[in-house]
Structure formats: C-alpha cells, structure tokens
C-alpha cells in the first residue's frame, strides 16, 4: 500500500441540466501523496471546479473510486461526507467566506464546533492556529476590520485548525493584489514545509508555479501532470 493520501481511479462526473448531460469529468485517475504540494490548473470548463468539489467531498462522483486517507468516500451519505470534510479537509476559498459578524477567533473556531470540541480547548486551538498564520494580535477583530490578506490568513487558520489531511484551496489569491498574493503563497510554502499536504486549484500559471507539481485538466481529462523546477530544487 502506497502512502497516497488521495487516490482517484477512473473518476467521472456527469450533470444533467434540463435536456443536456454535461460531462464535467471523463475518467480521471490521480494519486497525491502525503506532504505533496499540487496545483490543479485548466481553462474554464476543463472540470477543475468539479474536481475541486469532488476532492473536497462536497460532491460525489457519478462513477469511479475516490480513496481519501485510506477510506473510500465516493459513495457516502451527506452527513457522512460532512464528517469527512470536518476531519480531513481544510478549505480556503477565493472569497474567504468568513462570517462577517464573528471575530477572527470565532471564525477559526467554527470547524471545531462541528467537531464537538469543548469551548475552552476550541479557544486554545483556534488561537494557536491564528498565531501560526501571524495573526496573534488580530483575534478579536471582525473581518471588516482586516485587510484582504489578513482575511485570507484567518481563512487559512480556519482550514488548519482541525489538522486536516489536505489543505484544499480554490483560487486562494483570486481576490488579492499581487503583493498580498505572494504573501499568501509564502504562507502555503511554509505550511508545506511543515509537512502539510496542499492542493490548490487555480487558473493563474504564476500562482501554480509555487506548487511542486502541476496537474492540468482539459475537457474533463488529465492533460499533463508534471513536477516543477521547485520540486527538483
């Protein structure tokens, strides 16, 4: 048995939209090992959003297998998937998706609430996660009191707080300027350096270049899968 934290075989996802059937993924096979840093790229319509949703257990494939951290998750019920997301996956979104009326600390605590953790332990873990992304002095701030980069780092802290198997980022720099984007990419690199598995979906080549491996999708299939110079270095 390999140490593939993500193992996908012949994955297909069809959508029925009215009369039409859309083939978003047409048989993708992919293996991502522990502590890899992978970027998934592709033009719009290539199936990378669907790929992201399936990898994040937000959606289930029409056919094929998906093994996440040793468990087959492609046929689970909604609530079972919710549990898997809570335990195994840390999401980072393009639009941050923070709760506007909650403090940074409360936002980071949220996954732990659904994990059923006690308030006190929750606080400690959330504070530690915020420290890890350099926001120890911003815990009581609300999202509207933070800059875009700080908001995204709160979101990263939230993604990490439950120690997920994979950090799954969807266009994490799409709403940020280039300087801030570089900051976020540095944070990702640090996390990767600490052993975190990172999977990032993006359409920007210079962002994807930060990853050690780039998978390019086109028309629902893997077009190319190669290591970058970073990995070689």
């Amino acid at each position: 048995m390999s140490d593939g934290i993500i193992r996908i075989r012949d994955l297909a996802r069809r959508y029925v939209m009215g009369q039409e059937t859309v083939q978003a993924l047409r048989g993708v096979s992919l293996e991502i090992r522990r502590n890899e840093y992978v970027a998934i790229m592709g033009p719009s319509g290539s199936g990378k959003s669907t790929m992201m949703n399936v990898l994040g257990c937000l959606d289930t494939p029409t056919s094929g297998e998906y093994w996440l951290n040793g468990h087959e998750v492609s046929r689970l019920s909604d609530d079972a998937l919710a549990r898997v997301r809570n335990k195994e996956i840390g999401f980072v979104f393009q639009t941050f998706n923070l709760l506007p009326r909650a403090s940074a600390l409360s936002n980071v605590e949220l996954p732990l609430v659904y994990a059923g953790m006690r308030t006190r332990e929750r606080r400690e873990r959330a504070a530690a996660a915020l420290e890890r992304v350099g926001l120890a002095n911003r815990m009581d701030h609300r999202p509207n009191e933070l800059s875009g980069g700080q908001r995204q780092r709160v979101a990263i802290a939230r993604a990490l707080v439950n120690q997920p198997s994979i950090l799954l980022a969807d266009e994490p720099t799409g709403n940020l300027d280039s300087v801030t984007s570089e900051e976020i990419m540095r944070t990702f690199a640090e996390l990767h350096g600490q052993g975190q598995t990172v999977v990032m979906v993006t359409h920007e080549p210079d962002i994807a270049a930060h990853a050690a491996r780039v998978v390019v999708l086109r028309d629902g299939r893997v077009e190319s899968d190669r290591s970058t110079e970073r990995a070689a270095a």
């Binding site: 937000l58 609530d79 549990r83 997301r85 998706n97 709760l99 949220l110 659904y114 439950n162």
Partner: peptide, 16 residues
C-alpha cells in the same frame, strides 16, 4: 445561503 454552504463545507451535518 453562502453561510450555510460554508458551514456545511466545514463539517456541519443536516441536523446541525
């Protein structure tokens, strides 16, 4: 709606 989507992504079950 987005908040609900987020909560579900973070692991909220239907019942929660």
């Amino acid at each position: 709606t987005r908040e609900i989507g987020l909560r579900k992504a973070l692991g909220a079950t239907r019942r929660e």
